[in-house]
């Protein structure tokens, strides 16, 4: 039996490992439902984009990188599938939007946003997270997520919101007029919609790599909700010195 165990929900100080709730049930469901929906949306969206694939990095007539090389289109089966791409995109889009709205509402209602939204120290701490990832310094202190996670999770949420808004602007430019004007008109909305897709795809790639790097217990927390929490130095100090009044510090913080 661990000493210094609080009754009820809070097990603030402990000298043996406990399992701490990290991701609530609704967050887990919405996260995992979003994953295949996002893949379907990107895949069907690229089939639509293929029909008029004009975007490229470059200067003037010189294209350093064109979206996308033929080999990529062929490999992903994107060619000559505009009609099917549209049908999937405009059907699954509703599920993507509903899931995203549910996630946003839940994040606000449950106050879980406080773990994700960066605060005024996050930018500096995020720099230190990057240095830590490069093995240049020790890990800065973090809450449930480190500062780099908080910033990128927030940015990707904003990108998703812009993605959906530009999507609607392209989908119904007359009926939703003047929504397209917010994004520089129909073609502006189209470019931003594409850019957000690339941004989210890059996020997804880094996210997957970080999940791989972080190991099993971090990954399984998104399935089970819980992650094992080892007691740290502060626990030992506190438990050692305040055995009689274990619930004193920090409870309810």
């Amino acid at each position: 039996m661990p000493r210094a165990r609080n009754e009820g929900a809070d097990t603030w100080i402990h000298d043996e490992p406990v399992a701490r709730l990290k991701h609530r049930r609704a967050i887990r469901w919405l996260h995992w439902i979003n994953f295949p929906l996002l893949l379907v949306m990107i895949w069907s969206g690229l089939r639509i984009y293929w029909a008029e694939d004009v975007y490229a990095f470059g200067l003037g007539g010189w294209h350093w990188f064109s979206f996308f090389p033929d080999a990529v289109n062929e490999f992903l089966g994107l060619e000559r599938r505009l009609a099917r791409g549209l049908a999937f995109h405009l059907a699954f889009g509703w599920l993507f939007v509903i899931n995203g709205l549910a996630y946003t509402v839940y994040l606000i209602a449950s106050k879980e946003w406080r773990h994700i939204l960066p605060d005024r120290h996050s930018v500096k701490e995020a720099g230190n997270v990057v240095l830590h990832d490069l093995h240049l310094r020790e890990a800065p202190p973090q809450g449930r997520y480190n500062a780099a996670q908080r910033i990128s999770y927030t940015v990707v949420l904003v990108m998703a919101a812009v993605l959906v808004l530009t999507g609607f602007a392209i989908y119904k430019p007359t009926q939703l007029h003047p929504l397209p004007l917010l994004f520089g008109g129909y073609q502006g909305a189209r470019l931003i919609h594409f850019s957000m897709t690339i941004g989210i795809a890059l996020f997804l790639a880094v996210h997957l790599l970080q999940v791989l790097k972080s190991g099993w217990s971090n990954f399984s927390a998104m399935v089970t909700g819980y992650e094992i929490e080892e007691p740290d130095e502060l626990d030992r100090v506190t438990v050692g010195s305040t055995t009689e009044t274990p619930t004193g510090e920090g409870v309810g913080a």
């Binding site: 603030w12 449930r144 913080a253």
Partner: peptide, 10 residues
């Protein structure tokens, strides 16, 4: 740390 430990534990 208090943020990270704000969830219930079992």
């Amino acid at each position: 740390r208090s943020q990270a430990r704000s969830g219930p534990a079992i």
